[in-house]
Write a protein that binds this DNA or RNA. Structure first.
Length: 554
RNA sequence: GCGCCCGUAGUUCAAUGGAUAGAGCGUCGGACUUCGAAUCCGAAAGUUGGGGGUUCGAAUCCCUCCGGGCGCGCCA
């Protein structure tokens, strides 16, 4: 509908201009759904935007346009000039009804679109080191990345979800040593467990017990290097399996698990470094190999190979992002914790330097989560092992509540996550507000069928009976869903979906309290049931984008 | 010190540069004999952290100050 209005205005503008009424170009104006019903069904700001270039008052311009717009299209019932120069469109009562047919025809695909044009996008998220279980912060990244992937796919992108596994390097060494020491301790060997650098969490003891179960005390007799290596591998694979299980519990499934180690096995990292030397992007100093990041907008040069010959994480990351683009992704989205934000200019610099498509990379920073219980902060520290895991949170509050909590906030704002609030199965918890509406509609439709008013097809109802203000507003809201999905995808902001669902559901509950759907009037009941079915479908599609279930009963 | 993010009702959060800044919770007052009260209706509640600027129009963009968070490793 918005497109239709936009086209009409463009035509009218051209007609006016050819008569010399206007001189300039048509600006990039907006057709919007006004907040208030008093401003019509749709509002256009074109007159205000033209005011400057045409050097005329906006209301005068609006007047000239309105004169031409009258009778242009049968759906336009009334036009109004309001405020500083808005042109408000009042449309015919039945102008929106067709969306109910669209919903019916498209079903679970309603709201999807092709703005993505099948372009290949990678969303890389979570990517937590396999050194410990996921915590609440990872949960936020997981919910966001997964929902974003779903939204992008629905908007016509070809999406791959990838998890980057840092399975090599210092932290892995520390992990292996931590396990080795725990293993020795459990087998009564008298060893010190140093304070610094190692992983002390209780989960390490569980893994050590598991290791004893599988290997008995065989590892005790090995040379230390070999023993630690084996421990590293055992710990990492156990923890990674745990992460995968936790994510599955959270409804997140990756298409691809990319191992950092493979970048070395394939020779990609050394090859990339060599290439950088050849291109003159690197230099040696103090025994280390540096990237000239300052030439490309970063504030410092960055080390890629340390003085002792080992490569840094950054070296891997260069090869990794090169690899991503080599795999043919047109757009690459990285979701990181906000504590990594200092890393962004470095990565941007490397893309620029390597001639990779820099604007194809989008980094979304997810701000910290403050975990609370009854308003009191819960201590979180990975090294000491004192933290609430994502699994514990999911088990306590449920996957739906946790996801919805994450996805009603913008990612760049910090978030307080109160376990007690998330757990309450009541008004304080918005996820139930939305889910309840779905369950209510399901129950209503079932009850109607019982009473002999079956759910009819759009073709068999008289949509003209839907004349209540609330009905018109709900139908308009339903019609906005596709553009909302498109906007959410292009802006990479899944939280718009939950905000939309809250609004839709609010309108529904309100309507429900005011108007009876199933009555003795068969025709009216059928029409209203069809509308309810439309709401139900949009709720299902919207919740699916968030990865939240739409229960029929609760 | 430098850089990035944030600051909106008591509170948790919304608001493609648009009209009178909106919701949930909390508070106060109402509504179940009919489709699910995990709901609805009403009320109180705001100088959008302060101050400048940009323009027809700013919570939104720019500058500055204040406050909070996070970074500033040859860690990841």
């Amino acid at each position: 509908m918005k497109e239709r209005i936009k086209t009409i205005i463009a035509q009218v503008f051209d007609a006016c201009r050819s008569e010399g009424m206007f001189t300039g170009e048509l600006p990039d104006f907006v057709v919007e759904s006004p907040r208030s019903r008093e401003h019509g069904d749709l509002a256009v700001n074109v007159a205000m935007m033209l005011a400057k270039s045409e050097k005329k008052p906006p209301r005068e311009i609006a007047q000239s346009l309105v004169a031409r717009l009258q009778g242009c299209d049968p759906v336009i019932e009334k036009l109004e000039i309001a405020g500083p120069g808005f042109i408000n469109f009042y449309l015919r009562q039945d102008a929106w009804h067709e969306v109910l047919k669209d919903i019916e025809d498209q079903g679970s695909r309603f709201g999807s679109c092709r703005v993505g044009k099948g372009r290949r996008v990678m969303v890389e998220f979570v990517s937590a080191n396999p050194t410990g279980p996921l915590h609440i912060g990872h949960g936020r990244g997981a919910a966001l990345g997964d929902a974003l992937a779903r939204v992008l796919a629905f908007a016509g992108f070809d999406v791959v979800r990838e998890y980057y596994i840092n399975d090599i390097g210092n932290q892995m060494q520390n992990l292996g040593r931590s396990l080795y020491l725990r293993y020795q301790q459990l087998l009564k060997k008298d060893v010190e467990f140093p304070e610094e650098g190692l992983y002390r969490g209780a989960y390490m003891l569980d893994i050590a017990r598991d290791l004893i179960l599988k290997q008995a005390n065989k590892i005790l007799d090995m040379p230390e290097d070999e023993a630690v290596g084996l421990c590293t591998q055992f710990a990492a694979s156990t923890i990674l399996q745990g992460i995968e299980d936790d994510l599955e519990l959270f409804g997140v499934k990756f298409d691809s698990w990319f191992s950092e180690k493979t970048l070395f096995d394939s020779g990609d990292v050394p090859a990339t470094l060599e290439q950088m030397k050849v291109k003159g992007l690197a230099y040696e100093s103090e025994g280390a190999l540096w990237f000239k990041a300052t030439d490309f907008g970063d504030e410092k040069d960055r080390v890629m190979v340390r003085a002792d010959g080992r490569t840094t994480y950054f070296a891997s990351d260069i090869a990794y992002h090169k690899n991503k683009f080599q795999r043919g992704f047109e757009r690459v989205i990285d979701i990181w914790g906000a504590d990594h934000h200092g890393y962004v200019p470095r990565l941007a610099a490397i893309l620029k330097a390597m001639g990779l498509p820099q604007d194809a990379l989008g980094v979304i920073l997810v701000q910290m989560v403050n975990l609370l219980r009854d308003g009191q902060p819960v201590a979180m520290s990975t090294r000491s092992g004192e933290f609430v895991t994502l699994r514990e949170v999911i088990e306590e509050v449920g996957s739906d509540a946790a996801r919805f909590m994450f996805l009603t906030r913008r990612s760049d704002a910090q978030l307080d996550f109160d376990l007690e609030v998330a757990k309450k199965q009541s008004d304080e918890n918005p996820v139930y507000y939305v889910q309840y509406a779905h369950a209510r509609i399901c129950s209503m439709i079932a009850k109607a069928v019982e009473k002999g008013v079956p759910l009819s097809k759009f073709a068999d109802i008289n949509a003209g009976l839907l004349i209540e203000d609330e009905e018109r507003e709900i139908i308009k809201k339903l019609a906005q869903f596709p553009e909302l999905v498109a906007g959410s995808a292009l802006a990479a902001e899944p939280h718009r979906v939950s905000a939309y669902l809250m609004e839709l559901v609010g309108q529904f509950h309100s309507y429900y309290a005011k108007h009876r759907v199933v009555t003795d009037n068969q025709a009216l009941s059928s029409a209203r049931l069809n509308l309810m079915s439309g709401i139900k479908t949009v709720l299902e599609n919207g919740l699916a984008l968030l990865g939240v279930t739409a229960p029929e009963k609760m």
